[in-house]
């Protein structure tokens, strides 16, 4: 798979929450591709040390693909991406994005959609909601945020959703009782979670304990790759050896060397970047490989996973 990038221009920037900035993007030439609810794009940013690619959900209406919107939360421990978007990008600037891909589409056959958003995790649901409304689908949104930091689009959502919106501002001590939300649901209800890992983990474990079928639980977490120990990667096909720094991912190191690896999510979910391992122990951090595949060690997801030791030999 080749990953073409699309040059876009920043049409407007809006501060939609204290730490969240929304960017409206328009094609410089021609039209932007259509997208489905739940899609994301990668924004390709020229970082100081290396190119940075971050995945962001499209948070605009899929029926209006002339413009894309993305919303970026400024991360305290930014690896460069969110601080670049917040600090360096101005209206009129050009950016490069990848075409939309979707790893988090709503199941349109669902009887009901239960959307649970944490903070900036509201973004994919901003593309769900217009489509669900058009389809006349039954849904409710449970939105957990901290008003002093996040909570984007609240007024708009309140107006559009009315009683289908349930707001929980943790800054004001409003807690969401996940057990209650998940208990009172009928057959054919699908639950979707987007937010921090702790929220995803909380919803999944509560739902499973209550007896929810796993096929009704969907989630998306785009976490930045966690740093680790530096290691060497030896590449048998190209004959190259790379040094992977502590704060960069193996995928980023490969890209820095000009070795293209297909990828969609850069978060250990989509499975596109799977790379065969010839030698060396792997510290698996992805959600794609099964426990058996991880134990077998024949494959690594370079977007998030690293060497468990000092070196890896890859069949690439």
């Amino acid at each position: 798979m080749s990953i073409d990038s699309i040059p876009v221009r920043v049409m407007a920037i809006e501060q939609v929450a204290p730490l969240i900035r929304e960017f409206k993007l328009e094609a410089i030439e021609g039209k932007l591709p259509a997208f489905s609810p739940g899609s994301h794009v990668q924004v390709i940013m020229p970082g100081e040390a290396r190119e940075i690619r971050n995945a962001y959900s499209l948070c605009s209406d899929p029926a209006m693909p002339r413009r894309y919107s993305i919303a970026v939360r400024l991360q305290e421990d930014s690896r460069g991406g969110s601080s670049f978007m917040h600090g360096e990008v101005n209206v009129g600037d050009e950016l490069a994005i990848t075409p939309p891909a979707n790893l988090f589409a709503p199941v349109m056959a669902a009887r009901k959609h239960l959307l649970i958003a944490g903070g900036v995790g509201i973004t994919p649901f901003m593309s769900y909601i217009p489509e669900l409304k058009r389809q006349g689908a039954e849904f409710e949104l449970h939105y957990l945020y901290r008003g002093s930091q996040t909570g984007a689009y609240l007024d708009q959502l309140q107006q559009q959703l009315g009683s289908a919106l349930h707001r929980y501002d943790s800054g004001q001590g409003n807690k969401c009782d996940l057990s209650t939300v998940l208990s009172d649901q009928g057959p054919g209800t699908h639950v979707y979670i987007c937010g921090p890992e702790s929220l995803i983990e909380g919803v999944c474990s509560t739902a499973k304990a209550l007896g929810w079928p796993e096929s009704l639980i969907h989630y998306e977490a785009f976490a930045a790759p966690e740093p680790g120990e530096p290691f060497k990667a030896q590449l048998t096909r190209s004959g190259k050896t790379l040094d992977v720094a502590a704060d960069e991912s193996l995928l980023e190191a490969l890209e820095r060397e000009g070795i293209a690896v297909p990828n969609l999510c850069r978060g250990g979910v989509c499975g596109q970047c799977a790379t065969p391992v010839i030698e060396g122990a792997v510290e698996h951090r992805d959600e794609f490989l099964s426990a058996d595949e991880k134990a077998n060690g024949g494959c690594i997801m370079p977007c998030v996973s690293r060497a468990a030791g000092k070196h890896l030999t890859l069949d690439i």
């Binding site: 649901q185 009928g186 057959p187 054919g188 007896g211 079928p213 009704l216």
Partner: peptide, 10 residues
């Protein structure tokens, strides 16, 4: 029975 059943029915 199914129309009143919970999502956790088996």
């Amino acid at each position: 029975v199914l129309s009143d059943a919970p999502v956790t029915t088996r």
